[in-house]
């Protein structure tokens, strides 16, 4: 048996799951398939809630509603639309607290967009005092 010490890494880590969807997949949410689409997301979120791993998260309005700002020469440049047109768009995110990457990947794999899109899994940077 290896003895455990108080200073060792804590048993849980926070990960952000970024849900990336194709435009076609995202459009299902406003089509005749909307009940199935939202039902799948609802069940998925409920499962994570029941597992007690959710720290927070949100679904986002579509990229068309985005406003992008950058400052050049001290002046605001405000643009209509997302930062970049890409094949996949950010549809939402959650922060979960789990023991390791494999557990985070397990939850990422359950996301409805894992097949028709992808999920980016990133560790949350620990705060300096933690």
């Amino acid at each position: 048996m290896v003895r455990r010490h108080g200073h060792e890494r804590s048993d849980r880590m926070q990960f952000t799951l970024l849900y990336l969807e194709t435009a076609a997949e995202a459009a299902r949410g406003e089509s005749a398939e909307a009940p199935a689409y939202w039902g799948a997301w609802g069940a998925y979120m409920a499962a994570m809630g029941a597992a007690g791993i959710m720290v927070g998260g949100n679904a986002l309005m579509p990229p068309a509603t985005a406003t992008t700002l950058r400052i050049a020469d001290g002046k605001w440049q405000v643009e209509d639309g997302p930062f970049a047109e890409t094949k996949e768009q950010l549809g939402g995110y959650v922060v979960i607290e789990v023991p390791d990457l494999d557990t985070a990947l397990h939850w990422a794999a359950q996301a409805p967009c894992a097949t028709a899109g992808s999920v980016e899994v990133r560790p949350v940077m620990p705060s300096p005092g933690a």
């Binding site: 880590m13 990960f15 023991p99 390791d100 990457l101 494999d102 557990t103 985070a104 560790p123």
Partner: peptide, 14 residues
């Protein structure tokens, strides 16, 4: 170290 890859034997499915 940073990505959270655990030192563990994968479960039967994996």
């Amino acid at each position: 170290r940073d990505a959270g890859i655990a030192f563990q034997v994968p479960d039967a499915a994996q």
